[in-house]
Amino acid sequence: MASVRWVAGVVGGAVLAGVVVGCETPPAPEAAPGPTWAGAAPSVRAAPSGAGTQESCPEGGVRLLEGDGNAAMGLRVTDIQLVNCGTQPYVLEGYPEIRLLDKMRVPVEVAVVHGSEEITSAPTGVEGAPQRVELRPGQAATVMMVWRNLVTDATVPAAEGWVLDVTPRAGAPRVELGLGHSVDLGNTGKLGIGPWKAPAR
């Protein structure tokens, strides 16, 4: 799966190697810490596919995975992957319906807008015309998200989403994804999303 590449606020870990003393067996190296971002991840985070026991496929036949991320100068861009874990083709078209929930699973007040025009004038990869995407079993589509971590009014609490509640297409069951990196909106109140994009060839 795509690796996380958040470029701001991320502290790289160091692996401590054991030192051989005499004939003693060196101690096993400690695991390097993972990337950190705006607080600890909640317990609802989905396990990566293939890690540990095999995940069951949700009733809708698709699951979500947290993809790559990029953060610079308060502008956040990331992608979410939707994997067809069922046995039949899965068709997407247009934009998903997305809700944000906080750590207590309370909906976050945010205006979800199509595209990035209301967020930034810089190209982000969120732009693009909607298209029909058909996923064969095992294939994944992506949706890009963009927002700003910006506080412009100290009297308005900063909003932070830790769970995505996604309806991939009209009439489909909702799918949830716990995030390892929060959607830290500040008090901008806006989240830009792109259309579903076909898997890379």
Rank of each mutant, 00 (worst) to 15 (best):
Q131C: 01
G138W: 01
C23I: 08
L82H: 01
P123C: 06
P107F: 10
S49R: 15
A31D: 14
P137G: 02
A172S: 15
L164T: 01
G180M: 09
Q54Y: 08
K103D: 15
P89W: 13
A129E: 11
Q81W: 14
A158E: 04
E134T: 03
G61E: 03
Q54A: 15
G12F: 13
A28E: 08
M145T: 09
V175L: 03
L101Q: 06
P58V: 00
R148M: 06
S182K: 07
V11C: 06
V133Y: 12
V62A: 03
T120D: 12
E59V: 11
P48R: 05
A32K: 15
T87W: 07
A31S: 09
R105T: 05
L179V: 00
V146Q: 09
R132W: 03
A40T: 14
V20L: 08
T142P: 07
G178V: 02
A71M: 14
G52D: 09
V15R: 07
M144D: 02
A28M: 14
I80T: 09
R132N: 02
P168D: 00
A47G: 07
A51L: 08
D165E: 11
C85V: 02
S116L: 09
L75W: 11
I119N: 15
P29T: 03
P168Q: 02
R169C: 07
Q131V: 01
A172K: 04
H114L: 05
W6G: 07
V20Y: 10
E30S: 09
P42L: 02
G13F: 06
T120M: 03
L185F: 12
P168F: 00
G74A: 07
L150T: 01
L75H: 10
A8N: 11
R169P: 09
R148K: 13
A200M: 14
R5N: 13
K190Y: 10
W196K: 01
A51D: 15
D79S: 12
E97Q: 11
Q88E: 15
L179W: 14
A17K: 10
G86I: 03
W147M: 00
I80C: 03
S56F: 12
Q81V: 14
P199T: 01
M73W: 10
P199A: 00
V20W: 14
G50A: 08
V163W: 13
G12N: 13
D79Y: 12
G69S: 03
P33M: 08
A46C: 11
G22W: 14
S121I: 08
M145F: 01
S116H: 12
G69V: 02
G61M: 08
P42E: 08
A122Y: 15
R105L: 12
A47I: 05
G86D: 01
T87L: 15
V151I: 00
V10D: 10
M73G: 05
A14P: 08
A72N: 03
S49T: 13
P89T: 04
E176N: 08
E118H: 04
D153C: 00
G60E: 09
T167F: 05
T188H: 04
G161N: 01
A154W: 01
A41C: 13
D68I: 05
P195T: 06
